[in-house]
Design a protein around this nucleic acid. Structure first.
Length: 587
RNA sequence: GGUCCCGUAGCUCAGUUGGAUAGAGCACCAGAUUCCGAAUCUGGGGGUCGGAGGUUCGAAUCCUCUCGGGACCGCCA
């Protein structure tokens, strides 16, 4: 149970004792830190319901709470706010318990679930670009947070490895190298193990093919025919396609790896393809599919809908499937292979209507309960013009270029600061990489998921302010002071004593961890954890500036502060891990 | 045309079941280092919460209208 949950239960009891709904005893951090640490506003709505004076109710509750040794002060202010302060002994007691706890996940209690999380969506033969960035960063962090709390999470990259682009690639390659065995229908294999193309070839062939098909109808027909043949299982095309996928995957995986993002499953749209026919047959049996202008659709609108939800197209008039069909079949696949309790899609907010249609269709068809399918949408990363980020030439920025840009800038900042001199070239480069990636990821995660944000490398990379580098610095500094203390023979960490306001603030921040993690989990909003991380780093810096640690003369105080610093470091590093940021040993 | 989101300090943004004096970071101004990493810390100025009505004891938050910006709306994924 989190701290706020515990306090709410205690205050709720006091509400109950006064004959009021204990739910009203909800406690939150004080809006006025000058007056209190925590507050409960429940007396106001309680007064409305009970038709009584709010101040009188609040006073009765405050009197009940005053008897509790955990509280040093419970007062009533304004129209009926209940202000609460914990006693220093109580804070110290909780800190010592936290210190002894092996795994802080117990500060939050949830019902663990089996979850499939979809936060990839890269396409074969196309390099990763900024459009893939947010899904990867947010998804990775949510995956880690969910796992930390005990959920069984399977991350799936959901590769775009099917459909027309594959036919386009095949026909484009055939024009360049018509003698390859994959194109000769008289050959049925075996085919060469070595791929006939490099990554560079693919990245050149695809835009080439795509442009050609747009301009030339005959070329487009050719590509469509190849796509159909591939999907029917023509051996040469299948073999070639497997090479395309394998070559692409190596490159894609390497880039995700640089971002600290990994997937457990590398499934793709192709894996769902074979399930479409059976799924559609069942839907027809349930009379869910109907004809509409030659296409076959499933109507998902419901009575009482506030907004119009158009039907989901299952089959185009040419018989081809849409990505809605594929997404539905992917649900079938996931249910069969993972039997999840819930499926999460970390995908651009602009696709919310699509997911609404798919989720409803899945529910109607009995594939999976719609309320256990969640679209975790996010806003776009914009340029300074407020529009989705583009390169100076107006093209899409590759993820690789973005990562290089961040790393390079981090390297410059480190060189300017003179901090890493004497570290050696390899270590300095590694620090630059970690700082650059942390700057990028924290900038992304610290915005509320659903809002757009502006890419500003100078702001992201600043060492001061609410940035990734600031967090890394705080973490490194804790490590450093503890190492110094050990080297100086400052003794062991011991019982925590709360005296100075900076000690109290640090302790209260550390105790807020559970609520921060729970909020990030419950609302699927990692920025809530970012806010906590930043305020913890800040409050540690204040503590560090105000309180001597390793050379504090009083041995008991020294031991207490070593504990506090150790806890701060431990928690900060845990949060960095949950956010998917890597801190260097020193910087 | 229909639906949805957004408009808060000079800049970038928090503020999710309606609650006290609307917060943070940056920028700006003024300070702090005989001492554990000053990439830090302390203090300060800065707001008609787009606008107008309404509901409420109480509104940045809920409702209506309005102005401005953006997104989405079956045969691309």
């Amino acid at each position: 149970m989190t701290l706020l949950d515990e306090l709410s239960r205690r205050v709720g009891d006091a509400f109950a004792a006064a004959g009021l709904d204990p739910q009203l005893g909800r406690v939150k951090p004080a809006d006025r830190p000058d007056l209190a640490q925590f507050q409960c506003n429940g007396a106001l709505p309680a007064a409305k319901i009970a038709k009584k004076n709010p101040r009188e109710l609040a006073t009765a509750i405050a009197e009940n709470l005053s008897g509790d040794a955990a509280f040093s002060e419970v007062t009533v202010a304004g129209p009926g706010f209940i202000n609460i302060k914990l006693s220093d002994d109580e804070i110290a007691r909780r800190m010592n318990a936290l210190s002894g706890a092996g795994d802080w996940k117990d500060t939050v209690a949830i019902s663990p679930e089996k979850i499939v999380m979809d936060y990839g969506g890269p396409n074969v033969a196309k390099p990763l670009h900024v459009g893939h960035l947010r899904a990867a960063i947010i998804g990775e962090s949510l995956k880690r947070i969910f796992r930390f709390l005990g959920n069984d999470v399977v991350g799936d990259v959901h590769l775009g490895d099917w459909g027309l682009p594959m036919g386009q690639l095949i026909t484009e390659l055939q024009r360049e190298q018509p003698d390859l065995p994959y194109f000769d229908e008289t050959i049925e294999g075996p085919y060469p193990d070595e791929p006939p193309v490099t990554l560079k070839d693919l990245e050149r062939l695809y835009p080439q093919a795509s442009a050609a098909c747009k301009e030339n109808e005959a070329r487009a027909d050719e590509a469509r025919a190849a796509t159909a043949a591939l999907q029917k299982g023509r051996p040469g095309y299948r073999a070639l396609w497997r090479h395309f996928v394998a070559v692409s995957r190596r490159a894609i995986e390497a880039e995700y790896d640089d971002l600290g993002v990994t997937f457990d499953l590398w499934k793709g749209e192709a894996d769902a393809d074979s399930l479409i026919a059976g799924m559609a047959a069942e839907m027809r049996q349930k009379n869910l599919i109907e004809d509409s202008d030659g296409a076959q659709v499933i109507r998902v609108a419901k009575d009482g809908d506030k907004k119009k939800i158009p039907p989901l197209m299952m089959f185009k008039s040419d018989g081809g499937v849409t990505y809605g069909t594929t997404d539905l079949a992917t649900i079938v696949d996931r249910v069969q292979s993972e039997s999840p309790d819930r499926i999460l899609y970390v995908v651009d907010q602009r696709q919310s209507l699509h997911f609404e249609q798919v989720f409803r269709a899945a529910g109607l068809a009995g594939l999976f309960p719609a309320h256990r399918l969640e679209h975790i949408g996010f806003g776009t990363m914009n340029g300074k013009d407020g529009k989705p980020f583009k390169t100076r030439e107006g093209g899409v920025l590759r993820l690789r270029e973005l990562i290089d840009m961040m790393t390079e800038r981090a390297g410059e900042r480190i060189a300017d600061s003179g901090l890493a001199k004497g570290y050696g070239e390899a270590e300095t480069a590694e620090i630059a990489r970690k700082v650059g990636i942390a700057a990028l990821k924290f900038a992304d995660l610290s915005n509320p998921r659903t809002s757009d944000y502006v890419f500003d490398i100078d702001r992201f990379m600043a060492f001061e302010g609410k940035t990734g580098p600031y967090l890394l610095y705080a973490s490194v500094r804790v490590r450093s002071v503890l190492a110094k203390a050990e080297a100086a023979g400052a003794g062991a960490a011991g019982d925590i004593i709360i005296k100075a306001p900076e000690e109290r603030d640090l302790a209260l921040s550390l105790l807020a961890f559970g609520d921060a993690v729970y909020g990030a989990y419950d609302k699927r909003l990692p920025h809530l954890l970012c806010d906590h991380a930043f305020s913890l780093a800040q409050v540690f810096s204040k503590f560090y500036a105000a309180c001597r640690i390793s050379d504090e003369a009083d041995a008991r105080l020294r031991a207490s502060r070593l504990s506090l610093a150790g806890l701060a470091g431990r928690q900060l590093d845990l949060i960095l891990e949950l956010l998917g940021l890597e801190a260097p040993e020193r910087m």
